Computed example of a mutant assay.
Amino acid sequence: MINFNADKTLNAAATFWFLVAVLGQWIFVIYIAAFYGSAAVGGNFEKWNKVLPNGYVDGDPIYNLALATHLSLAFTMHFFGPLQLIPQLRSYAPTFHRWNGRIYIATAFIISLAGLYLTWTKVPFGGDRINITINAIAIMVCAAMAYRYARAYNFKAHRRWAIRLFLVVAGVWFFRIGLMFWLAVNKGPVGFDMQSFQGPFLTFLGLAQTFLPLAVLELYFRAQDSSISIAKWFVSIIIFLFTIMMGIGIFAASMAMWIPRI
């Protein structure tokens, strides 16, 4: 009975995290479509510069195309990505799952390459090229591994790499909600300068956007494979706490950045 309750709690914690994450990502998707999409449809690309320090650049069509590709694919990744992780959809619509997965993996490579081009041709706000590059490489590695294990019909390994891909693809999203969580709990910037957008906290957050979600996921996988109830309870608590922090960040980001621009 104890083992059953521990397993049930661990599954509940993971489900709770997934639902909150999907809600937050779909709010982000609506924002991308409403702000960037509407500006593009209306031909008002300069509007992007109200949000992006290195947004639309007059006279640089290659850069602008890369940016438009990156934004449009971000919409695709954050909207369709969560659908890959719904087990009922995998069971009842396997054809959709396979084709959506192929598109998702191909998109992951394209969005990473576009992101690298944008990062290394224009200095990003705060100059954090290294952490952005690390995230892009992590996306491509996870995408390649997910594809490899799917082709090998090793679906347990494929599923785990697909979840890792889902997390690292959301690196920019994690950065935003992590920043807004930090600003909300501290009632202002602590550990960095808002004008230059540099400081030790942002350096930490730049690494955390990729590695912190992966670390929590690895704890979840180990607890899932373990027969020790206390390990399952411990990881469940970590996931619940991580979800609450994520929820605060999502709410703060939605109210301060996304919803006002929709």
Score class of each variant (00 low, 15 high):
Val168Gln: 05
Asp225Ser: 08
Arg129Asn: 14
Trp17Phe: 15
Phe109Gly: 07
Val169Ser: 13
Leu73Gly: 03
Ser112Met: 07
Ala146Leu: 03
Ile177Thr: 05
Arg129Leu: 13
Phe240Ala: 09
Lys187Asp: 15
Ala143Thr: 07
Leu23Asn: 03
Ile239Tyr: 00
Phe240Met: 10
Trp233Cys: 12
Leu85Gln: 06
Gln88Ala: 15
Leu202Ile: 08
Ile62Asp: 05
Met257Ser: 14
Thr15Cys: 03
Ala14Lys: 15
Gly206Pro: 01
Thr243His: 00
Cys142Asn: 14
Phe192His: 04
Val22Pro: 01
Val41Trp: 15
Trp17Asn: 06
Pro213Gly: 13
Phe45Ile: 00
Arg151Cys: 08
Asp128Gly: 05
Leu83Arg: 10
Gly206Val: 03
Tyr220Thr: 11
Ala40Val: 02
Asp128Tyr: 11
Val41Ile: 15
Leu10Tyr: 06
Ala143Gly: 08
Ala223Pro: 03
Gly55Pro: 01
Ile110Leu: 15
Leu89Cys: 08
Leu179Asn: 08
Gln209Gly: 08
Ile103Ser: 14
Ala33Gly: 12
Val57Arg: 10
Ile244His: 02
Asp225Cys: 02
Leu214Gln: 05
Pro189Thr: 04
Val123Trp: 11
Pro200Lys: 04
Ile110Met: 10
Tyr147Gln: 14
Thr107Lys: 05
Gln84Gly: 04
Pro260His: 09
Met180Tyr: 02
Gly206Arg: 01
Glu46Val: 09
Ile248Tyr: 05
Val235Met: 03
Lys47Tyr: 12
Ala106Arg: 12
Gly171Thr: 11
Leu214Thr: 04
Ile134Glu: 14
Ile103Met: 14
Ala144Leu: 13
Arg148Asn: 13
Leu23Ile: 11
Ile110Tyr: 10
Val169Ile: 14
Arg222Glu: 09
Ala184Arg: 03
Phe16Tyr: 14
Gly24Cys: 10
Ser236Pro: 06
Ser38Asn: 15
Ala252Leu: 01
Gly126Cys: 07
Val168Ile: 07
Ile110Cys: 07
Leu116Asn: 12
Gly42Met: 05
Arg222Gly: 02
Asn3Phe: 09
Ala170Pro: 01
Tyr92Met: 10
Thr133His: 02
Asn5Thr: 08
Ile238Glu: 09
Ala106His: 14
Ile238Leu: 13
Ile62Lys: 07
Met257His: 12
Arg160Gln: 07
Gln25Glu: 15
Leu19Arg: 09
Val41Tyr: 14
Met180Cys: 01
Ile228Val: 15
Gly178Leu: 00
Phe28Pro: 04
Ala157Thr: 04
Ser229Trp: 03
Leu67Glu: 04
Ala184Asn: 04
Phe80Val: 06
Glu218Cys: 07
Trp48Pro: 00
Ala231Asn: 08
Ala39Cys: 03
Phe201Gly: 12
Phe35Gln: 09
Ile130Cys: 06
Met255His: 05
Ile2His: 10
Tyr153Phe: 12
Ile27Asn: 06
Ile111Arg: 01
Ser196Leu: 02
Lys156Pro: 06
Lys122Ala: 10
Leu202Trp: 05
Ile139Cys: 10
Ile228Met: 13
Thr15Ser: 08
Ala223Asp: 03
